[in-house]
Nucleic acid binder design. Structure first.
Lengths: 116, 116
DNA sequence: CTTACGTATCAGTGGATAATGATATGACGA
DNA sequence: TCGTCATATCATTATCCACTGATACGTAAG
């Protein structure tokens, strides 16, 4: 194993970190619950709070995060702000993860390295 | 928004948390680097350390995590232990995330909610 | 049996971050 | 204009978790 090998095989570090960051965006239960709520419909913050059981400030904070990441878009309507998924492929990623878990039945839940 | 609505639309909490945990598995730069290294080939811990630049104990720790989660499999060969991806769809997920970032040019890097 | 090597585990530590409560901003209705 | 509602921001706190260095375990070679 040499440095040359590393440079040959490794994707650009930028890409690596960005992808990791994208997955981290999906990897928080609160954010994933929000995205789940948005898979079917555009929803207001209030509705999202109702669906997810999150506190309002907490939901707002995560929505800001998802917005910054480009995972959702925002539309103001009077006093309401309605959010929706920015790209259909985000729903695809979420669905694929679900299928992987369903069919593979892998031991994600038993992994003690991080709590989940 | 009623409790009934929530129960109608929300996926099972177990599933939600499991999917989030799966994404978190992919959402650490070190683990993603390891998985990247395994996309093309089966590799020993030593080789993985060389590819990723991680410390050996650190790599071992993440590999244990990935193994527990069922994302990689393990095969002993003398003193060596060789790891590979457990399922082709894991590579697919990683690739899809890369495509999403490439085409969408979304602001994942600018999101300040978490550092990445 | 002793040494060298590959891998795994453990305890300690620092840094990151999700949740909460209080509060600010902004829009609508009376 | 005043009060109410929807959303966003801020500071605090407590928790989590990735990394490091030391070390243990197992295998092969001499």
């Amino acid at each position: 194993m040499t440095t040359q090998d590393v440079q040959d095989d490794l994707p650009a570090p930028d890409t690596l970190e960005l992808r990791a960051k994208l997955f981290r965006g999906l990897g928080d239960p609160s954010r994933l619950a929000i995205l789940d709520a948005l898979v079917s419909d555009e929803r207001s913050v209030q509705e999202i709070v109702g669906h997810t059981g999150l506190g309002q400030p907490n939901a707002s904070n995560h929505l800001r995060c998802l917005l910054d990441c480009g995972l959702v878009t925002r539309r103001s309507e009077g006093r309401f702000v309605r959010y929706r998924l920015a790209d259909g492929r985000i729903a695809d990623l979420i669905r694929d993860a679900g299928r992987l878990l369903a069919s593979n039945a892998n031991g994600v839940d038993t992994c003690r390295n991080y709590t989940g």
